[in-house]
Design a protein around this nucleic acid. Structure first.
Lengths: 347, 347
DNA sequence: TGCAATTGCTTAAACGATTAAGCGCAGCAC
DNA sequence: GTGCTGCGCTTAATCGTTTAAGCAATTGCA
């Protein structure tokens, strides 16, 4: 029943060359003592046979699966592609495969997902935790990517600094009243970003906070954010804590006939897929996911190689915060000192 | 060096209960002949010891890793989250883990990614192929999710029918001239969708095609699509072949002062994350990714269980096309017979 | 020349599970 | 009482790899 693996194995190479399996293994891994000539012969023969080591056999013997887990939290998080891509790239550069586990929104499902990964024998995992959840240490090394203020965090973009960048940018454009638009008050990331913005305000500037999820709980999902009213109140800049909210703000303003960036400015976070191609293109802050992934993976790999024990450990890296980069596009412009009725060009 | 697995193994349970490992294995898997009383004892004892079978050991013996591969093609495809989520859900319901492999855009990288998965010993894989590429059969069962017109396709949304839904919807609203906006002419999916739309046009309706990538090659990335001009030419509906293009169209129109849906209608495809929350919310066509994933996975699993041979086989399913569902929101409305200057409400 | 150290390879024991085969014993029929 | 069947369990082989230990043969050094 159990289908044979197609390719050759060590012993096939060994018998075919008239040596022992151990020698073949040593020759290929470069570990034991084998003469250079024989190493050469074995390597070429293995290559021409198309030998691929069996991960199962190796895993059983070494206790290492060569696989890392990736636990993602939010349903259909638009950052998912970037994160998954960066992690997969960094992991496979380090010789690891990536097993994904998505906790479909459920809070308890996160621990379930983690357990499933552990059962599959991952050597370690990267967790992007659900809002404000702590990772109860699993039985393998864990790297957490969230925000520097999360306990147990390994590495993250410097969301706070990103917020300051936005604030500085808007200050430079002469904006005085800034509406910060976030989704969820529980999110550590969003709180850090908002904190950064507020911290970066110059004297004479003020900000107000708008949490969409709270608004929707009262008014219903997909409701208007009331930005026209805010504009009338004198707000000239809308700083969203994610490009998704920025997009929502942008289209609502446009629909109300308020011109961006002529009348008001809109900024976002994350440089998501649509940010460069909407009109006007979105000014945003980009996180260096590749660097973050690299740091997380290498911290994880270090830990895996070092630890004889397989205890659950929250991995830490030297560089905790990776700077974010301001991307200035069309949606932010000079503050309009007295915002008035937008002048529409006729068709 | 090789760290011991933390949990107990079969032999620990066996000796602890004074029986043989084989019996424990049989009791837990329910395969051999073991008395009910003993089965009960073994199961409870295994449970209280927190026994987790070693995937490595099992994989080595059975030749099955219990892991499926998922090969995704396009850089940062915004559908990624839905696909990955659906596949992961279906796979883990079937007892499989999901190993991801992203071919960072490269065309050759797709085969590389596939090879990496094979080397990791996946039992089968799901491939969402890069535009118009054929999958050269790997050495394991492969399910292809693309569009029905792709050779070797296993299961897909019925993009053609989705196009007809859009056409019927727009026809019902009285639109006569429809601009179909796609990204890439090579995409089988986009071609099917466009074909469906054209096929669904009523007598007296006409359509024109706009490929963004081609336009950008001439005019530069992120350029305007010239939709205001198209509106002046009498187009009243813009049917994008993906919500990303729909969003681009929507914001450009709004920026030009053309009101959606009062002056013109905009529709998309895929019901991506932002579609419900932009203003106006996007009329689109949703694919039933859950069903598609389920079909793909079950076809794959069937094949894995059935085949003694481990040949590379393109798996086929009975249900090839999963119907798409029209989601009517605010961005589509009655055709404006004589589109005129939009009337803006003042602030 | 003699003894130790090094080299180049082999032997063999794991890792943890699955599973075919075997073995004793009870029950039953003739 | 003998032969057969079926039950409940054990024995043992196996998957493919790694790696400690061992064993000749050669080299080095005095």
């Amino acid at each position: 029943m159990a289908s044979q693996r197609p390719g050759p194995n060590l012993s096939r190479i060994a018998t075919s060359l008239g040596v022992s399996v151990a020698t073949v293994s040593n020759a290929l891994s470069g570990k034991g003592r084998v003469s250079n000539a024989l190493i050469e012969r074995i390597r070429t023969h293995a290559a021409e046979l198309g030998y691929v080591p069996s991960q199962a056999g190796r895993a059983l013997r070494t206790g290492r699966s060569g696989v890392l887990g990736l636990v993602l939290p939010d349903i259909a998080n638009p950052l998912f592609p970037k994160i998954a891509q960066a992690i997969e790239f960094a992991a496979s550069a380090a010789g690891y495969g990536v097993l994904i586990a998505d906790s479909r929104g459920d809070i308890t499902a996160q621990t379930e997902a983690i357990n499933r990964l552990v059962e599959r024998g991952v050597d370690g995992m990267v967790v992007v935790p659900r809002r404000a959840t702590r990772i109860s240490a699993a039985s393998c090394p864990v790297a957490v990517i969230d925000t520097a203020s999360t306990p147990g965090n390994t590495v993250a973009a410097d969301h706070w600094q990103g917020g300051r960048e936005i604030a500085a940018h808007l200050a430079g454009l002469g904006h005085k009243q800034i509406l910060i638009i976030g989704n969820n008050q529980e999110s550590n990331v969003q709180n850090d970003r908002a904190g950064g913005i507020r911290a970066g305000l110059q004297p004479g500037m003020r900000s107000e906070m708008l949490w969409i999820e709270r608004l929707e709980n009262e008014t219903g999902a997909g409701c208007r954010l009331g930005l026209a009213e805010k504009t009338r109140q004198g707000f000239t800049a809308f700083a969203a804590l994610s490009d998704l909210q920025a997009l929502r703000a942008l289209t609502e303003l446009q629909q109300e006939g308020i011109s961006v960036p002529t009348d008001v400015s809109v900024t976002g976070f994350d440089d998501l897929i649509w940010s460069p191609v909407v009109t006007p293109s979105l000014t945003t802050v980009r996180m260096d996911m590749d660097t973050i992934a690299e740091i997380a993976i290498s911290a994880l790999v270090d830990r895996i190689n070092e630890s004889g024990t397989r205890e659950g450990v929250l991995v830490t890296a030297e560089t905790e915060r990776v700077p974010m980069q301001l991307v200035i596009r069309q949606s932010s412009g000079l503050a309009n000192p007295a915002p008035k009725t937008s002048e529409m060009e006729n068709l």
